[in-house]
Design a protein around this nucleic acid. Sequence first.
DNA 1: TATTGTTATACTCTATAACTATA
DNA 2: TATAGTTATAGAGTATAACAATA
Lengths: 140, 140
Amino acid sequence: MLDMGILSSSVEFSLRMASVAAGQRFYEAMRAFRLRPGQFATLVLIGANPGVGQRGISETLRIDKANFTGLLNTLERRNLVERRADPGDHRRYALYLTREGKALLRKASRAYDRLEAGLAKLLPARVRRDFVANLRLIAE
Amino acid sequence: MLDMGILSSSVEFSLRMASVAAGQRFYEAMRAFRLRPGQFATLVLIGANPGVGQRGISETLRIDKANFTGLLNTLERRNLVERRADPGDHRRYALYLTREGKALLRKASRAYDRLEAGLAKLLPARVRRDFVANLRLIAE
DNA sequence: TATTGTTATACTCTATAACTATA
DNA sequence: TATAGTTATAGAGTATAACAATA
C-alpha cells in the first residue's frame, strides 16, 4: 500500500473516491434500465414535479442548460418524457413523464432503493442519517 | 425549490452533488497551478512514495493505466515528474518528482490545505474527523 | 432587456482493446 | 504466461459562446 500523504485525511479526495465507488454501483444497478445518473435524476425530478421547466431541473442538478437539452432529447426519443408547450409562457416547455416513463421510473426506483441499502450497509448505523445531511452541507 | 423525491435522502446522489461542489472549489484553488485533481493526487503520491511505478499510482487513484500514461506525459512535459528506468525490472519506470515538481507541490499543497479548511468549516466540528472515515468506508 | 431553450464546439474523463517489451 | 506500460479510439461529462424566440 502506498503512503497517501496529505490525501489520506482529505475531504475533497475522499469525496471524489467515494463518489466514484458509488457511481460504479449506480452503473451496475441501472444498467438494466439504460439510465445514467443525470437521466435517472431527471426522471425522478419530473415525476415529483410534473410541469417543471428545463431550467428548474438543470439548475437543481447543476447541469448546464446547453447540455441538458441533449439529455432530454435522449429521454424523449425513448418515449420516457414529454415536452409540452406551456400556454402561459411560450419560451418554456412543461415537462411530464409518459406512461412508459412512469413505469420505468417505478422499476428503476426499486433498483435504486436496493443500491442505497447496499451503500447504507457500509456505514455504521448510528451515522447513516447524519451522513447525508453532512453531504448536503458541502453540496450547498 | 423542487421536490427532490427519492433523491433527497440518497447517499449516492448527495455524494455526487457534494463531490461536484468540492470539485469546483478544487478548480478555483488549483487554477493558479494548472493542476487538475488526478494530476495533483499523482504529484502527492509520487512525492510521498519516490520510485513508485505507474501501476501503483494508477491503481490507488483508480485511473486506468491507459489513461494514466497521458496524465504522466503532461506532468513530464512540464518538468514536474521524471520517469527513470528501473534497473531491477526493465518493464517498469520508477517515478520521481523533479526539483520543480517538489517546489510546485509545496505551493499547491498549501493551497490544498486552505481548500480543505474551507470544506471543514461547512461541517459541524464534532463530525469532521469521522466524516472522512465514513467516506473511506464507501470508497472501499 | 432578461429569460428559456437550442446549436456548435472543444476539452476532459472514462472504458476498451490491441499492442510492445520484459519477467 | 503474466506484468508494465503505450497507442488508438469512442463515449460520456462539462464549459463556453452565440443564437432564436418570447417575456
